Amino acid sequence: MTLFTVALQGVLPNADVVLMNNAFGTFFIAVFYMMLWDILVDGIHKKKPARIVKAVLCGFLPVLGTIPLFFVAGLSANQNIPFPVIKALITAAMLVPNILTIEGGVAMAALGVGFYIFRKHRIVQIILLLILSAVVYLTGDHIQWMMCFAAVPLALYNGKRGKGMKNFFYLFYPLHIGVLYIVSTLCFG
């Protein structure tokens, strides 16, 4: 997704639109922490301290993934390094999902993990969603708070697997972001 957005902005630049949507990074980080949750719980239940330590230490990896960004930020202050080099390094650093650059921030990854932890407790999932929506609204974001309306399909979910349209959505997500960017650029750029 990062390469797609960089290429699209290179072909059709628009200084008024920053295209950095990448829910895949958020999903990656959330699933990573879900795996660590399972390792942690297993270590606690089986009384295996090594598994507990492994889960806790691995939890720092998405935080350590921010180091390349700080490195590039430091390099950007050096006027001897050409801007195209800085831009290429930023793009490379953005290829590694990390806790600072994921779409929706830490809160969205935490919501995904919360949904996983409470996957057998739908009411708790809905409460988590509503609490996060309220916090988002109170912090001044007057669009993202509307995620609270996802409580309706969440409450109506019957627990059965859907049609299996995974591949469709892997294509739809980047394509719809690209189409919206192109329309925005051609109509308002």
Rank of each mutant, 00 (worst) to 15 (best):
L36R: 04
L69Y: 05
M108Q: 10
L171N: 06
K54A: 12
G159C: 05
L69P: 01
Y157W: 12
G162S: 11
V72D: 10
Q144P: 05
K120D: 14
I90Y: 13
F169P: 05
F28W: 03
V6L: 06
A155S: 09
H176V: 13
K47I: 07
I29K: 01
P13R: 11
S133Y: 02
I117L: 00
V41C: 08
F60A: 09
I90A: 07
V17F: 15
C58N: 11
G10V: 03
V31S: 00
T101W: 06
G59Q: 09
K48F: 05
N14T: 11
A23M: 14
L111C: 11
A15G: 07
K163F: 06
S76G: 08
M34S: 13
L154I: 13
V113D: 09
L69K: 14
Q144D: 15
H45A: 10
V135W: 01
Y137S: 00
S133I: 07
V56L: 15
I44G: 05
L64E: 08
S184V: 04
D42R: 15
N167D: 13
P174G: 14
L8A: 10
M94S: 14
A30D: 06
T66D: 04
L128I: 06
P68K: 04
D42I: 08
L95S: 01
I182T: 09
N80T: 13
Y137W: 12
L156S: 02
A23Q: 12
A110V: 09
V72F: 09
S76T: 04
L95F: 01
M20F: 14
N22P: 09
G159F: 02
P13I: 13
L129K: 01
R119N: 14
L128C: 10
F71P: 07
G59L: 00
W37C: 05
V136C: 06
A15F: 06
K54M: 11
H142E: 11
G178D: 01
V6C: 07
L154T: 10
L64V: 12
N98I: 01
F188V: 05
A77S: 08
T26N: 09
A107P: 05
W145Y: 15
M165N: 03
V56M: 12
Q9N: 15
A134I: 13
M20H: 12
C148V: 14
F24I: 10
F149H: 05
H176I: 13
R51W: 12
G74H: 00
L128G: 01
T91L: 00
F24K: 02
A134D: 09
G189R: 04
V124L: 05
D16T: 06
F60N: 07
L19W: 14
W145H: 15
W37I: 03
P153F: 15
K47D: 15
Y157L: 08
E103Q: 13
P62V: 04
G178W: 10
